[in-house]
């Protein structure tokens, strides 16, 4: 945790921050790899919700370049396994996620990101 599947589904939600607020950028990320059961149907079901470019860019930032730049139309088993690894087996345990738009910092501690907003960031 934070896994890239979750990271791909989060955007900055501070007051007034509505454009260019995704994907959040990792900083000082400490990564752990942990095996997870491969479930191809689960990965397939997720694909419509995944922003491909954001996923590829973020994986690259974290040192994983196994995904192709363009989302392939056909998903073979090999690619699903690669996706499985990128989405579910890379965990950011410490570090920060920073909004590219408003620079809000969401700190990650023991794998749990703190995404509470401060008083002046809520309406």
């Amino acid at each position: 945790m934070v896994r890239l599947i979750t990271h791909n589904l989060l955007s900055c939600h501070a007051k007034g921050c509505t454009t260019n607020n995704f994907p959040l950028q990792f900083k000082d990320a400490e990564i752990e790899h942990r095996e997870a059961d491969f479930n191809p149907e689960f990965i397939r079901g997720l694909l419509p919700k995944i922003e491909w470019k954001a996923l590829v860019d973020t994986a690259k930032e974290l040192g994983d370049t196994s995904l192709p730049y363009e989302q392939p139309e056909m998903m073979d088993d090999e690619l699903l396994k690669t996706l499985h690894h990128v989405l579910l087996e890379m965990h950011v345990e410490e570090g920060q996620m920073i909004c590219p738009n408003c620079n809000h910092v969401y700190p990650i501690s023991n794998g749990i990101p703190n995404m509470l907003l401060a008083e002046h960031e809520i309406a």
Binding site: M1, V2, R3, I5, T6, N8, L9, L10, S11, C12, H13, F22, R34, E35, A36, D37, E51, L88, G111, I112, P113, N114, M115, L116, L117, I122
Partner: peptide
């Protein structure tokens, strides 16, 4: 391994994209 993630936020001000 099936606990995907734990996050701290107020669900009424959630960051789901």
């Amino acid at each position: 391994h099936r606990i995907v993630d734990l996050l701290t936020f107020d669900v009424t001000r959630n960051p789901w994209r």
